[in-house]
Computed example of a mutant assay.
Amino acid sequence: MISALVLVIIAIFLPPVAVFIIAGCGADVLVNICLTLLGYLPGHIHAFYLMYVYYNKKEQAANGVYDSRPAPAVYSDNVQTGGRGYGAMGTS
């Protein structure tokens, strides 16, 4: 597991790589690549938003709280569940 600090450093220089690390290969990476090509700042904003959602859901799961509402504009199940993989968080 990559630490949050290393992930932030990667996101500063290569936002699509940071998104790939937390979301895997999917729509979120494609969206981030497009945003980064449109301008470096939109790619950063998207990458840091995904990291916020990922670590927030991960912390909620560690505290025994499960918010089943999906975060808007996040297409990866890995990010939506805080890294608990695909499916329900409560079954792990």
Rank of each mutant, 00 (worst) to 15 (best):
M51I: 11
E59L: 13
N56K: 15
D28K: 05
S3C: 02
V17E: 01
V8M: 10
M1N: 00
A4Y: 01
M89H: 04
V79W: 01
V74W: 02
T91I: 15
L7C: 01
K58R: 15
T81K: 03
Y54V: 04
S3I: 00
V79H: 03
Y55T: 14
P16M: 07
M1F: 00
V74F: 04
T91F: 12
I21D: 03
L7T: 00
P15H: 06
A11P: 04
V29C: 04
A18R: 04
Y75N: 09
A73D: 14
G85V: 10
Y54D: 07
L14W: 14
V8Q: 12
I12G: 07
H46C: 11
L14H: 12
L38E: 07
A27H: 06
V31C: 06
A4Q: 05
G90P: 03
S76I: 06
Y75S: 12
I22Q: 03
I9D: 11
V79C: 05
Y52C: 12
A61P: 01
L35R: 05
G82I: 05
A23K: 02
S68Q: 10
G26E: 09
P42K: 05
N78T: 11
I10R: 06
L5D: 12
N63T: 10
L50Y: 06
M89E: 12
A88V: 14
L7V: 00
A4V: 01
A18M: 07
L30Y: 05
M51G: 04
A62K: 15
N63Q: 15
F20Y: 12
P72D: 12
R84K: 14
E59K: 15
E59P: 03
N56F: 13
R69A: 14
Y40K: 09
T91Y: 13
K57L: 05
L41S: 08
M89A: 13
F13T: 11
Y52I: 11
I2L: 06
P15N: 05
T36W: 09
L37V: 10
V74H: 03
A62F: 09
N32D: 12
F13A: 13
G82P: 07
P15A: 03
A27C: 09
T91W: 15
F13V: 15
A23T: 04
G87M: 09
P15F: 04
A88K: 14
I10P: 02
A11T: 02
M51V: 06
G26F: 08
T81C: 05
G83E: 04
G39W: 10
G85L: 12
Q80T: 01
Y86F: 12
K58P: 10
V31Y: 07
I9E: 11
A11D: 01
A47V: 05
G85I: 12
T36C: 08
F48Y: 14
G85E: 08
P72S: 13
Y55V: 05
A73N: 14
S68D: 15
G26M: 07
I22P: 00
L41K: 07
I22H: 00
L37K: 06
F20I: 01
I2D: 00
D77L: 12
I12W: 13
I45M: 08
L35V: 02
E59I: 13
V29M: 05
G85W: 08
I45H: 08
P70K: 13
G85H: 09
L5E: 07
M89I: 15
V19W: 02
